[in-house]
């Protein structure tokens, strides 16, 4: 009886811990207002990157590609430091939100399973260092990425 009781307690504690992790994950997702993120993508990104992120001509492709930039820290920072992100009129929270939305909605299989969402604080810090020679810098990064 005592052993069974202990087991039951462990199950209950396990359940509580499981639920707490679920809450953290849910909080992370709940911070994203998908309607606002989509609208901001349309207003400030879609004009060049096209509705589904395909891009074109000299406009980089986002669709099924953007997630590869989360493979290392320098590439991750690049997504915030590009002029379209760093100089956008969006505030830090909205920029983080639209970046996360783009990765989730357009990234497809390129997104790593252990994706870390951008936060407003991270974005605020990185956009202070905007890139100027984007084309060469991107080319250098892409050569380092493991792209399928």
């Amino acid at each position: 009886m005592i052993a069974l009781s202990l087991f039951t307690k462990r199950v209950v504690w396990g359940l509580l811990i499981f639920c707490s992790f679920q809450t953290v994950a849910a909080d992370n997702l709940l911070k994203m207002n998908t309607d606002r993120a989509k609208f901001n993508y349309q207003m400030f990104c879609q004009g060049c990157h096209t509705p589904d992120g395909t891009g074109g001509k000299s406009v980089p492709k986002i669709k099924n590609y953007i997630g590869y930039f989360l493979q290392n820290q320098v590439a991750r920072e690049y997504l915030v430091r590009v002029p379209g992100s760093a100089n956008s009129p969006l505030n830090d929270e909205q920029l983080a939100e639209v970046l996360n939305w783009m990765i989730i909605e357009l990234g497809g299989e390129s997104v790593p399973k252990s994706m870390q969402y951008y936060t407003a604080n991270e974005v605020a810090k990185l956009r202070q260092k905007p890139l100027f020679e984007v084309v060469d810098y991107r080319e250098m990064l892409v050569k380092r990425l493991a792209v399928k």
Binding site: F39, Q42, M43, Q46, G47, C48, T50, T54, K57, V59
Partner: peptide, 21 residues
């Protein structure tokens, strides 16, 4: 052209703002 500029306009019928490409 696949690239474009985007704005919003208010539809007088329903009073809502729409994203226009």
């Amino acid at each position: 052209s696949p690239i474009t500029w985007i704005g919003t306009c208010r539809n007088p019928i329903d009073g809502r703002n729409y994203v226009i490409s």
